[in-house]
Design a protein around this nucleic acid. Structure first.
Lengths: 335, 335
DNA sequence: CTCAAATATGGGAACGTTCCCAGTAAAAGG
DNA sequence: CCTTTTACTGGGAACGTTCCCATATTTGAG
């Protein structure tokens, strides 16, 4: 059985009002009463009931994180798990507890569930559609999006500057003399993969090159296997590229695997480059050149802003883009 | 503003008792009343307040997961994130919401926090000490442990059969003709690393071999860098092994990196083997031979059992060991 | 010495549910 | 036709807090 504030009050010989004042730390309390109550709290290992507190204050200090995944589990996702880590760490700092939910299909289910739990705010990560967005908006609960597949002018959104990232990749590969180039592009319905390809192509054009449609493999999902398959498909064509850029690291790793199996040396014969800078990029063989995304910063900033939203601040920037950074490793470094 | 059951009752023209009966689905309600209430619920997008419900029922349908990590973030941990994924999936199935917490040092902080939130149960993962265990036990809240660093006869524990796993590794390497062998062993305070080494050694002895202390590198943590460092340290000694076994995959990957940098071919010159079967093991170059742990099964079983505990079942097995499985990949396959 | 301000206390309403209970109306049993 | 059961309804207490309010005591300024 759990003790209540009444038990504390009774055993400390004060009223529950006084006990409440000591425990919540607000209002006038005499030194004597304070000591008696604190001693009793200690002795009975009393823990205030956050449920009852929430009921009266209408704040739960709980936040829901929903990651909509289509193919891949959430927590073990090499990218989103990093963001989630950052959120969890920041949450401890700010005194929030985090509900983590994952949903295979994009539906209202998770949001409904967390709304019933009366979370103070919501963080939506990755894929979502307009219907869901409108649904969440219709309850006026603070929420932010991270790396969402869609954009909305009214909703605070944290994302990597993928257009710039695509350009960085193209610029680097061209500067290193890699040409011709092939691209393995993730699903174009997703904002980030679309922008990465777009930035890459724009930079090529700016530099006097071009990117033909037949030099692009459009992947069905964003995983290792699709990178591997891309090599098989692209190789049915005549020319062999000097480098392959994939719009994320997992696919780039699949590309490397495909190349090695075909007997090519990476980067000796064909170089490979990814995007995301997941943990494994640094330790793979060869280590993967990629575009680093500030995953930790994104996660922390998202919760920080959500906290401000919860505390009633209104005039916050609607979009925050994080600047990506080139990370050069072995997979594009010859000699 | 959120609607309450009173609003529903008023707008539907019934008492809040009747509205409650319709919404919670228990007690007698006329067809007419039911329809009126359901229509109003639909119209106002009413969501029952789980906080108020919890207060009266004393169940929250929330469960806390605490992962104590020493060096590595939790969600992006290649092993525990898989377990967490399984827990999240099972939770959706069983109708629980999951609080995920992470703690750098082993303290009562996270447990206290979640206890105040009045979670129905707790899942403790990885490292913990007796003090913490006794503390959690002192509140009689149902809880289970997964892959805990310590054992306790009274607490339900889900773990891999690490002793058997160590034997499997030794048996396989010997059968393939690998000898002499080096071992990179994780911190021996942790039950699983201790048992993996123990099983490995026992099998060697059974087979007429032995494992000298100087052929073991005791790692300070369980990460990539320590595997890499192990190679540097072990190589200061005279003989070169035919294979190296690391008590987890991350260290094994570090070993491979170290070997490659020294100019050895893996497995041509020296083979390498890990333990865990994390995602990266399958896609690394060379793909890593390892001992597979049923991470998903462990996570699901843990929540399943916790649910039974919460529902009042008492006679449950105190320990469940999952049988590991050999996974042979390139890193030990010659030719 | 008086009176206002500051300090301290306890009673009780409120938060949004559930659930027990008393009561009524209709159906069924004798 | 009376009685018992069944079907249905609404009032109100309870869950464990916070917080407003009324009241009591102490402090200290004039």
């Amino acid at each position: 059985m759990n003790y209540t504030i009444k038990d504390i009050a009774y055993q400390a010989g004060v009223s529950k009002s006084t006990a409440s004042r000591v425990i919540s730390g607000k209002g006038y309390v005499s030194m004597e009463a304070r000591e008696k109550v604190e001693a009793t709290v200690q002795r009975l290992q009393y823990k205030p009931n956050a449920i009852a507190r929430s009921l009266v204050s209408s704040f739960t200090r709980n936040i829901g994180v929903i990651i909509y995944r289509q193919h891949h589990p959430i927590a073990s996702h090499p990218f989103y798990s990093k963001v989630l880590d950052a959120i969890l760490e920041k949450a401890t700092e700010l005194g929030y507890a985090i509900f983590v939910m994952t949903d295979m299909e994009i539906s209202n289910r998770s949001a409904d569930f967390l709304l019933e739990k009366r979370v103070d705010g919501l963080i939506l990560i990755s894929r979502l559609n307009n219907e869901l967005l409108e649904y969440v908006k219709s309850f006026d609960i603070p929420f932010v999006m991270i790396n969402s597949s869609i954009e909305d002018a009214e909703v605070t959104h944290f994302a990597n500057d993928d257009l710039a990232g695509g350009k960085i990749a193209a610029e680097y590969l061209l500067a290193e003399g890699y040409h011709p180039l092939y691209v393995v592009a993730g699903p174009q319905e997703h904002r980030s993969h679309y922008l990465r390809l777009k930035g890459f192509r724009e930079k090529l054009v700016e530099s006097g090159y071009s990117l033909a449609e037949e030099d692009i493999y459009y992947a069905e999902n964003t995983q290792f296997d699709e990178g591997y398959r891309a090599v098989q498909c692209l190789w049915e064509r005549a020319s062999i590229p000097k480098a392959i850029f994939a719009t994320n690291d997992m696919m780039a790793l699949g590309v490397i695997r495909g190349l090695i199996e075909k007997g090519y040396r990476v980067p000796g014969d064909v170089a490979a480059m990814g995007f995301d800078d997941i943990d494994y990029a640094a330790i793979s063989n060869p280590a993967l050149t990629t575009v680093h995304i500030a995953k930790t910063k994104m996660g922390k900033a998202a919760l920080q802003t959500l906290d401000q939203l919860i505390r009633g601040q209104v005039h916050l920037p609607k979009e925050e883009l994080f600047t990506p950074q080139l990370v050069v490793r072995e997979s594009t470094r010859i000699g």
